[in-house]
């Protein structure tokens, strides 16, 4: 049996005496689209931070494709093929849209800290950047500083930066938060297309997005996963109904 893309084993995270995450177990198979849902304050973003190396687990371990990654720095985890977006838009505000995406392409194309190459004359970087800008429909805004984009455009750029490195495991933290219906539909189509053949972990509040997009869903309540399964299983699970879907299910 091949290793899961992401394997979280018995992870605890305490801030002082407060346990935010308790005995968290999560397994995401390669190529799967996995959604994490749960009420506000359940620890969804903390889970993302734990997996992506933003914070370190107090106990337990996280594996990426079978290798332990807990304790590694975020950039080390990123170099192993895991990329994440942020719930609050987190772009390079003073740099142009083009520069934003290009920066995210540079490490993956092997240019690293090079100070002897002209960044404008790297054909593979240029092509990859152009392709991603086409994919996220921002080519016409390429020279605009990212800080001046509309909110929806910034969210799209956020996704573009996240996938630019070509990571095989992509984690999106509420990619459609604050979007209108039309914008959400567009973003979901975009996510579906861009994560084709990749492993996707997504935190999302919009249930139509979750049930439309995910192969499997995990429900997080008070820092603990109470159920994991297909959308059908989750819909029927009495514990989930009680804890979470009860008041929000359509």
């Amino acid at each position: 049996m091949t290793a899961a893309a992401i394997e979280v084993r018995a992870v605890d995270k305490r801030f002082g005496n407060v346990g935010i995450i308790r005995d968290l177990n999560l397994s995401v198979a390669k190529g799967e689209r996995h959604a994490i849902i749960g009420p506000n304050g359940a620890g969804k973003s903390t889970t993302f931070n734990l997996i992506s190396g933003h914070i370190e687990p107090t106990a337990g371990e996280v594996r990426l494709n079978g290798d332990v990654i807990s304790g590694l720095r975020p950039f080390e985890i990123n170099r192993r093929g895991l990329s994440r977006s942020f719930q609050v838009t987190n772009v390079f505000a003073r740099m142009s849209v083009w520069e934003n995406v290009r920066c995210a392409v540079l490490w993956a194309t092997g240019h690293r800290y090079a100070f002897w190459k002209n960044v404008d004359s790297l054909p593979e970087v240029r092509e990859r950047t152009a392709k991603i800008l086409d994919d996220i429909h921002l080519m016409h805004r390429r020279d605009v500083p990212a800080g001046l984009l509309t909110y929806a455009e910034q969210r799209e750029l956020e996704i573009g930066i996240t996938i630019a490195s070509g990571a095989t495991v992509v984690m999106l933290d509420e990619p459609t938060a604050g979007m209108s219906h039309a914008e959400t539909d567009r973003a979901v189509a975009l996510i579906r297309r861009l994560t084709e053949g990749k492993t996707l972990v997504i935190v999302e509040h919009d249930m139509s997005v979750v049930f439309g997009l995910a192969d499997r869903i995990s429900v997080l309540v008070y820092g603990h996963i109470i159920a994991s399964g297909t959308p059908e299983e989750i819909r029927r699970d009495p514990k989930v109904k009680e804890a979470y879907l009860g008041e929000e299910a359509h």
Partner: peptide
């Protein structure tokens, strides 16, 4: 250069740089 552009990125948002 790549370093020059990444320096700009570090100036704008050092946190995000770690995730690229």
């Amino acid at each position: 250069t790549p370093l020059g552009r990444i320096s700009n990125a570090v100036r704008d948002n050092p946190e995000r740089v770690q995730f690229i």
